[in-house]
């Protein structure tokens, strides 16, 4: 349904051209959930906003690539057609529900406005639909809640309202940009469950953008790992978690707390900072931070290669060297065996 082909989104800054999204391709089928994972500054959000064509332009420009939604290339649509498409075909929810709602209107008004933007119906019908939507997103006593202002709702409820607004146009794709980051853990789980339910009920495809691997593990069918504007690993959720083929993904997984191991393992952060995207390092972008980097990594810029059915990774290390490297590193860390 959605196909992104060789998309490049560059940002023209005074310091130079930032390659925020660099040659990214992926596809999304109807009703599928895809997780886009990466640390801050890896280009996740720019990618998401590219799909909505909402990156401020200038300075953002798209030197190459296609975003095909059911065959239409979004990069070539006029502003009016795009507006028609936003909310109707693609909707989005944001990280911070605290500031995603207009503070001076009742949530009912905002929800009804969103409904009436997409459907030509009168106020009474819009109100009925709004109440129904609020019920769908699990807000109790929706008739009364319609008259609440955003500040009267908790963060979790606001995020539910945001989801309701996003669903107002019955979108085919829902982009969720870190939808649970600003919420506490119990509410996070509820919101994720809600998104699953919504997907079942409405058949919406979901693109979930996050730095929290726990979130995608729960929700996504497929995971795309981004680093410095590129996809470095892509595959089914199980493959990413259990057959990790790229040192960056492996480091991400190690820096995440796990509850399925009883040992009191220490979390291991990824050293250093994401690279400067104006002048990325020579060779592989991850080489300055990669524990397994070899001399070749400084020269060769790897492209995605197939590692299994539908599992791709961008790394020149062979599976064997990678496994040996991991083992050595773990021995060094736990038993002090020198490298």
């Amino acid at each position: 349904m959605l196909e992104v082909k060789n998309l490049k989104a560059y940002i023209d800054t005074p310091a130079g051209i930032v390659k925020a999204v660099d040659d990214v391709s992926f596809s999304l089928k109807a009703g599928e959930t895809i997780g886009i994972v990466g640390e801050s500054g890896s280009g996740k959000s720019v990618l998401a906003l590219s799909l909505m064509q909402l990156n401020p332009s200038p300075p953002t420009f798209y030197p190459q690539g296609e975003i095909l939604l059911e065959g239409k290339n979004l990069l070539h649509l006029k502003e009016k057609e795009l507006r028609n498409l936003r909310g109707n075909d693609i909707a989005m929810i944001f990280q911070d529900p605290m500031s995603s709602l207009n503070p001076i209107f009742k949530i009912g008004t905002q929800l009804m406005e969103a409904i009436r933007t997409h459907q030509n119906i009168n106020r009474a019908e819009a109100k009925k639909k709004a109440i129904e939507l609020l019920k769908d997103v699990g807000i109790s006593d929706p008739e009364r809640r319609m008259n609440d202002y955003p500040h009267q709702l908790s963060g979790g409820m606001r995020q539910r309202v945001m989801i309701a607004i996003a669903l107002a146009g019955k979108p085919k794709i829902l982009i969720a940009d870190e939808p649970t980051t600003a919420l506490d853990v119990t509410i996070q789980a509820q919101i994720l469950d809600l998104m699953k339910d919504i997907q079942k009920k409405y058949g919406t495809a979901i693109i979930i953008i996050t730095h929290d691997l726990g979130v995608v593990a729960q929700l996504a069918d497929k995971i795309v790992v981004m680093y410095s504007g590129r996809i470095v690993e892509e595959g089914k959720t199980e493959d990413i978690f259990y057959h990790t083929a790229m040192p960056y993904t492996w480091s991400l997984l190690r820096s995440m707390p796990r509850i399925d191991t009883s040992s009191r393992e220490r979390l291991i952060p990824i050293q250093g900072q994401p690279p400067n995207l104006v002048s990325p390092p020579k060779g592989c972008n991850f080489n300055p931070r990669c524990p397994f980097a070899t001399a070749d990594c400084l020269k060769i810029d790897p492209s995605l290669t197939e590692r299994g059915a539908g599992h791709y990774a961008a790394c020149i290390l062979s599976e064997k060297t990678f496994e040996e490297g991991k083992l050595q590193l773990e021995n060094f860390e736990t038993k002090g065996v020198p490298l």
Binding site: M52, L54, R83, N84, L85, R86, G87, N88, I90, A91, M92, I93, F94, Q95, D96, S99, S100, L101, N102, P103, I104, F105, E113, A114, T117, H118, M162, I165, A166, A168, G169
Partner: peptide, 26 residues
């Protein structure tokens, strides 16, 4: 640049709607 305005854009609101119902009242 507040997020609710970006959120409004993602629902397909036109510039006129954004200026009159999201920015002006605020």
């Amino acid at each position: 640049n507040v997020q609710y305005i970006e959120a409004a854009k993602t629902t397909g609101a036109s510039d006129f709607v954004i200026l009159t119902t999201y920015i002006l009242p605020n």
